[in-house]
């Protein structure tokens, strides 16, 4: 029964691994040199080496994490938060990343007064981000394959013993597929929300996407927000405490 599923699993794994191995060979060397520079305390060089990999169009949680750490050592809080947030997004369950992100956030100038949330909501939110979109999408496809295979077996063996057994697997797989699929869509929605980090030491948030409009408030380096809309070179951002305003796009970086 599980034979076809195993095959599909193996196929998917093989597919993914071969890809990453081919890419990884090119960048592992740069990464190792960056790590060595960091260990020696040569943070500027480490940042340059890490950035080369990023410029090559590739990334990894460890790379973003190391780069975030190096930026923090160079007192670039904004850059550091940006890269640590990216690392967190790539590997949401990594404790080191979470720890350093929280630690670096202590160094920003702005502190938001957030309303307290109940432990249940907090738990739910963290569970929601427990898996990456990639993991959820792969789980969904595995569920799908299981669903298809068990359906075929069930349909073929209707009225027979193995057919009935396959039906229960089919039901389970369907439930799982709906759950995991829904979760991946939610994760996709979360992922597609544009998040930004303030990159400049001090940036003015305007009431309209015009230079001459009223300045609503001022944000400092490292502050994060969600992009609500976009107009030319301006973002309408929303802070965690609900404040909204327009910021020039070149003053912020997208996570």
């Amino acid at each position: 029964m599980t034979f076809p599923i195993k095959i599909s699993l193996h196929l998917i794994l093989f597919f993914l691994l071969t890809r990453t191995v081919i890419i990884g060979a090119d960048f592992q060397e740069l990464m190792n040199r960056g790590d060595a520079a960091f260990t020696e305390g040569n943070f500027q060089q480490a940042v340059e080496l890490y950035t080369q990999i990023l410029n090559g169009g590739h990334t990894s949680a460890a790379l973003e994490y190391n780069l975030g750490n190096a930026c923090f050592k160079l007192d670039q809080v904004g850059q550091s938060i940006l890269h640590l947030e990216r690392a967190h997004k790539l590997s949401p369950r990594d404790e080191d990343i979470q720890f350093n992100l929280n630690y670096v956030k202590l160094y920003r100038q702005d502190q938001l007064d957030l309303p307290g949330r109940s432990a249940l909501v907090e738990q739910f939110e963290s569970l929601r981000r427990y898996f990456t979109l990639r993991e959820l999408a792969l789980a969904a496809i595995i569920c799908w394959v299981l669903l298809v295979v068990s359906f075929v077996i069930f349909w073929h063996g209707r009225g027979k013993r193995y057919g009935n057994q396959a039906f229960y697997i089919f039901l389970t797989a369907t439930t799982m597929f709906i759950l995991v699929g829904g979760w991946s869509l939610d994760s996709y929605r979360l992922d597609s929300q544009k998040q930004i980090v303030v990159m400049e030491t001090e940036v003015q948030i305007h009431s309209a996407p015009v230079e001459t409009s009223k300045v609503l408030f001022i944000l400092h380096e490292g502050m994060e927000g969600t992009v609500k809309s976009q107009a030319d070179a301006w973002y309408e951002i929303k802070l965690a405490d609900g404040k909204t305003g327009w910021v020039q796009a070149d003053a912020v970086a997208q996570i």
Partner: peptide, 30 residues
């Protein structure tokens, strides 16, 4: 208190902005 140290073991590199839901093979499976 200080930062935790960098990771010396890198996880596999992935393409920046790569989204599995935007891959055609993914939907072909369905």
């Amino acid at each position: 208190r200080d930062l935790r140290f960098i990771k010396l073991q890198s996880d596999p590199f992935v393409r920046i902005g790569g989204n599995i839901l935007h891959k055609s093979w993914y939907w072909l499976v369905f």
